[in-house]
Design a protein around this nucleic acid. Structure first.
Ligand SMILES: [Zn+2]
Length: 273
DNA sequence: CAGGATTCCTGTGGGC
DNA sequence: TGCCCACAGGAATCCT
């Protein structure tokens, strides 16, 4: 699943090839990928030039000439394949975009991803109710504590809530809780201010390390482009069920929290009631 | 209002 | 070319 580090990697990678290229042709083959309230259809981008590459939370945001923005959320399996010449489409290719030097294929096997074209990205993201970016200076232990100290939800779900901190997904949520030694079922109202500080610091470190490594590679998600398993960082919690804890050797345990697979160390991450 | 449940999709993998 | 089916997962939406 592409989370913030993967999205950042994808944006920066595409920027290298597509900056200043003009779109000659766009074709969306699976219409439901375009949000029904998208301000413009995909075709509006024909004739426009890629002038900026941005990321907000887990959203990619491509800026075009004349003030248009193409915003995409990859969800679990959205991915780009970039080619220098015409390439055969697969049954999972849902969008085709051609520029003077590239052919961009957008694929999503599960068709869960979403995109939109707008001239007002600020209001677009406002409607999505996104919280602070991990490195926003407004994200302080006081802010986080205030945001969660009355909540009865599990901290695991709080970390996945994009309206509090944006960019964390199921993989890094487990990594952050392992790193801070907090049990994933701990209620928000049992998290101390000190732990809020630990969570913020760990979030920043964890995501920075992942970006430095180029994003992780889990299951169907490969990397920015049609390159497989090139960058892979070591995950200490996610997907480590049954493996010895890297801190204490105790077998890692898997539970389901709010429908999300969650792995933690029962010895290092104690429940707090 | 908070928070739990449901829904959207389809490849994968385990069981038989 | 075996068949069946539970499972996974981000966020919108519905429900309590
Ligand atoms: Zn441990």
């Amino acid at each position: 699943m592409p989370e913030l580090p993967e999205v950042e990697t994808i944006v920066r990678t595409l920027e290298k090839s597509l900056l200043n290229e003009t779109v000659n042709h766009v074709e969306l083959m699976y219409e439901p990928l375009l949000e029904t309230d998208s301000m413009y259809p995909m075709e509006i981008l024909e004739g426009k030039k890629f002038v900026g590459f941005h990321r907000r939370g887990k959203y990619l945001c491509f800026e075009f000439s004349d003030g248009y923005y193409w915003i995409i959320h990859l969800r679990m399996e959205g991915k780009f394949h970039l080619y220098g010449t015409h390439h055969r489409l697969t049954k999972h290719t849902h969008l085709l975009m051609q520029t003077e030097h590239h052919e961009i294929h957008y694929l999503d096997t599960r068709k869960f991803s979403r995109m939109a074209v707008t001239k007002d990205p600020d209001s677009y993201f406002m409607r999505k109710k996104l919280g602070f970016e991990p490195w926003d200076t407004h994200l302080t232990s006081s802010y986080l504590y205030e945001a969660i100290h009355k909540s009865t939800r599990a901290i695991k779900l709080i970390l996945l809530d994009q309206s509090i901190i944006t960019g964390i997904g199921n993989i890094y949520a487990d990594e952050i809780l392992f790193d801070t030694q907090i049990h994933p079922l701990t209620k928000g109202n049992k998290i101390t201010k000190k732990q809020c500080e630990l969570i913020i610091n760990s979030t920043r470190n964890t995501l920075e390390n992942a970006i430095a490594a180029g994003g992780t590679t889990i299951r169907s998600y490969t990397s920015a482009l049609n390159v497989t398993g090139r960058f892979q960082i070591t995950l200490k919690a996610y997907g480590q069920e049954g493996e010895p804890c890297s801190r204490c050797e105790t077998p890692m345990v898997r539970i389901v929290v709010g429908g999300r697979s969650t792995v933690f160390c029962p010895k290092c991450q104690k429940v707090k009631r």
